[in-house]
């Protein structure tokens, strides 16, 4: 009888050596327990060309320098923990492969939020912006016995903005957000859009009032950085424009 072990042994023997590639990883470090100023560290590691950058960071953390600190969880682009400035662009480290950036990659924390340690930033101002736009369904017209009806077309109207994972890649790529702490930023507007254009919601006007204030949607200068940065492929700038138009024409 062939056992599990035989199969695995055969498999191990058949395993070809993967051609690894060298990757030099340069990281902007910061830790106020060590120094008031940030500094750069650099490591060169060998990795599978298809290795995710977040796993390259793990390789460094687990085998070279345990003090390197970053957030991560799902490692496949759905939890939004590992947004970083990678070669000058906001991306999720788990959606960038080694071969995309080899032989050299520069990683910094996302901008516009205070750095707490290495690649970890203070998310609270970002979450404050999110909470400010009433990010929940409001409908006081009584609850049906079963589900509320919504046509596939009405459901499709706000589909794009339901994809947001609150990673902050859009908001921290926005030059207006960097310069103006009061601006709610693209992610908050995306989440407002998700409810403003949901046919079941009744508080669109209230959200539009919040977003028409000086910290709101008209701060946007339409630079499209946010759309480029979104790891979920949300057309962020388009969503912002739709909210602007809805406020101007009250068409929603």
């Amino acid at each position: 009888m062939v056992t599990a072990a035989d199969v695995l042994d055969a498999s191990d023997q058949a395993r070809p050596t993967i051609d690894t590639i060298p990757l030099t990883v340069r990281v902007r470090r910061f830790n106020p327990e060590v120094s008031e100023d940030s500094w750069w560290d650099e490591w060169t590691v060998r990795c599978d060309p298809l290795e995710r950058l977040v796993e390259v960071l793990h390789q460094i953390k687990w085998h070279h320098d345990g003090t390197l600190s970053f957030r991560r969880s799902c490692a496949h682009g759905v939890c939004g923990s590992d947004a970083m400035l990678i070669n000058g662009r906001n991306q999720l480290a788990c959606k960038v492969l080694a071969q995309d950036v080899a032989p050299r990659v520069t990683i910094e924390p996302i901008r516009g939020l205070s750095v707490l340690k290495d690649l970890i930033v203070d998310m609270e101002p970002f979450m404050d912006g999110y909470r400010s736009i009433l990010p929940y369904l409001i409908n006081d017209s009584g609850e049906p016995e079963k589900e509320r009806r919504q046509s596939p077309e009405d459901r499709h109207r706000y589909d794009d903005t339901t994809k947001c994972i609150l990673c902050a890649a859009c908001t921290t790529s926005c030059p207006v957000f960097w310069g103006d702490e009061g601006y709610v930023g693209p992610a908050a507007i995306v989440n407002a859009h998700r409810f403003i254009f949901d046919s079941r919601d009744e508080a669109g006007r209230e959200r539009m009032k919040i977003l028409s204030e000086k910290t709101g949607v008209f701060r946007c200068r339409t630079t499209f950085n946010c759309t480029d940065a979104c790891p979920r492929g949300i057309e962020v700038t388009k969503a912002i424009q739709e909210v602007k138009r809805a406020i101007l024409f009250e068409r929603f």
């Binding site: 369904l137 589900e147 509320r148 919504q150 339901t162 919601d201």
Partner: peptide, 20 residues
């Protein structure tokens, strides 16, 4: 439990007549 999620705003895909 599913109706409750829908009433809280969960964007389920819909049938042509608007149900979940």
């Amino acid at each position: 439990a599913i109706y409750q999620l829908e009433r809280w705003g969960l964007p389920f895909n819909r049938t042509p007549d608007g149900r979940i």
